[in-house]
Design a protein around this nucleic acid. Structure first.
Length: 315
DNA sequence: CATATGTCCTGAGAGC
DNA sequence: TGCTCTCAGGACATAT
């Protein structure tokens, strides 16, 4: 489930293609329903072959190859998509191959490749897509009108401004890419735990202190996750561009830990609930409901993971 | 306008 | 053991 940290890790792994020239595009013999390649292969190939990649960028949960033709290739991995410079996990779900001119980039060992280098788009469930759009279309599709500011770039004020009017639960609102871009189901739970915010709290009932903590927690959790190259869950799907697993899953505090003791307070048990048809995980000890009443001053300011808060149970 | 629900997809795991 | 069923959650279409 590539979210911001996973997609950012992909982006960094793809940087070696900058300067590379595309010499061929192939779909694969994947018998299954092909993923959406827009436009269809013929037109796609005609427009990208011969072009050079000038930058690799990330927009929300998508990876973008910027070409020297004022066009961009947008990879949208959704649940199970991978963009790889190494051999894919299996041949079965390989969807698209983009060949680069020989010597385009150095292999992980540092040697300049003699053979043409390849970039693969692999996607087991096929919910993802690869599309080629002009710079103008790109802005229309993924610009400020459609996508909120990146979760790592948004200011505390803007975060509050964009969400505080909503009546939705904060956990649900964090998944809205038009409000803030890059957060998915896994990191929404992790961020709210780090911030000490009850996931069911309505946005319009959050206090100033909550917004400050939320903003700080977003940066802390997402940057930590990037440092560990994202989360590879038990299904093993997510891999970086070199087909290596991430390790942030070993640092999860709440996600997929229902029934286990909270790693911060060490007394409460992680709960799993469902919000908007998605799992939410939280610690009822660290993430108290407050209902807009005067804060109970139950957390020492700045004590991020040092001292357990008092008490444990919920309600 | 804001918010909620249904849809797509495959493979892992549960339950019998 | 082998079958059927449920579930995981990205973004978007459609409904309320």
């Amino acid at each position: 489930m590539p979210e911001l940290p996973e997609v950012e890790t992909m982006r960094r792994g793809l940087l070696p293609v900058v300067g590379g020239r595309i010499v061929a595009v192939r779909s694969t013999k994947c018998r299954r329903k092909p993923i959406a390649v827009v436009p269809r292969l013929g037109a796609f190939r005609r427009r990208v072959v011969g072009r050079k990649v000038v930058a690799v960028e990330r927009v929300g949960k998508r990876v973008v190859l910027r070409l020297d033709s004022a066009e961009v290739i947008v990879f949208e991995p959704r649940m199970t998509g991978l963009v790889l410079l190494a051999d894919p996990p299996t041949n079965e779900h390989l969807r698209l191959r983009i060949l680069f001119q020989a010597g385009g980039w150095r292999s992980p060992g540092g040697r300049r490749r003699r053979r043409a280098s390849e970039l693969y788009y692999w996607d087991r469930r096929g919910l993802g897509s690869v599309r080629l759009v002009s710079d103008g279309e790109f802005t229309r599709l993924y610009g400020a009108g459609r996508l909120g500011p990146d979760a790592l770039a948004i200011s505390a004020d803007e975060l509050r401004q964009r969400l505080a009017g909503s009546r939705r639960a904060i956990k649900v609102a964090l998944l809205d890419q038009r409000a803030v871009a890059g957060i998915g189901n896994l990191y929404a739970s992790e961020i709210l735990h780090e911030a000490g915010i009850w996931p069911l709290a309505r946005c319009d009932r959050l206090r100033a202190v909550d917004w400050r903590r939320l903003h700080a927690a977003m940066a802390a959790v997402l940057n930590d996750a990037i440092r560990f190259e994202g989360s590879t869950l038990s299904d093993g799907t997510y891999r970086n561009a070199l087909n290596q697993a991430g390790s942030y899953q070993n640092h999860h505090r709440v996600y997929d830990r229902q029934g286990q003791a909270c790693r911060r307070c060490r007394s409460a048990t992680i709960q799993r609930i469902v919000q908007a048809q998605r799992s939410t995980f939280f610690c009822p000890g660290c993430q108290r409901r407050h209902d807009g009443r005067p804060p109970a001053a139950h957390r020492a300011p700045g004590s991020r993971r040092a001292t357990p808060p008092p008490g444990g149970g919920v309600q």
